[in-house]
């Protein structure tokens, strides 16, 4: 069971890392999204998943039954999903704005920051 999960997660992460190596900014972002999905699944796996009843306290008792699912990883994954979503949303907006101002998302052509104060030749002014 765990092995199947682990294999699935490593496939997802492998795809994510492959996309990260691309020059195209959107592909890089997709890679980050896949990686973050993979990490979220690892958190789940770390909480020992199995055919457990949901972590709900039965009427009349004060504690969880011992075989109930671990609720903590779910809380952690939820937090991580929310954070990951906001970061990816920001990064996509950033990519969109870059495309609007520079007309390209190819990392080879996006070198405005590197050109500032470069020792070789002063192409751009030293302004912002």
């Amino acid at each position: 069971m765990n092995f199947v999960y682990a294999a699935g997660i490593s496939a997802i992460m492998g795809c994510g890392i492959y996309l990260l190596l691309s020059r195209h900014t959107m592909r890089i972002l997709l890679g980050v999204m896949l990686l973050s999905a993979g990490v979220n699944l690892v958190i789940f796996l770390a909480g020992r998943i199995g055919p457990n009843p949901p972590p709900i306290i039965e009427a009349g008792s004060y504690t969880l039954s011992p075989e109930a699912a671990n609720p903590l990883p779910q809380a952690l994954v939820l937090t991580a999903i929310v954070i990951g979503f906001s970061l990816v949303a920001f990064a996509s907006a950033l990519a969109l704005q870059t495309f609007r101002t520079s007309g390209t998302l190819d990392q080879r052509e996006l070198a405005d920051a590197e050109a500032l104060g470069s020792p070789y030749e002063s192409k751009t002014e030293g302004s912002r």
Partner: peptide, 25 residues
């Protein structure tokens, strides 16, 4: 939102996102 800033921010964002993902892992 100038060209240089957007370029710098993308590099900052991608590598730091990778760093925090590794941290979370």
């Amino acid at each position: 939102r100038t060209r240089t800033q957007l370029d710098g921010t993308i590099k900052y964002a991608v590598l730091n996102l990778l760093g925090t993902l590794l941290f979370l892992l």
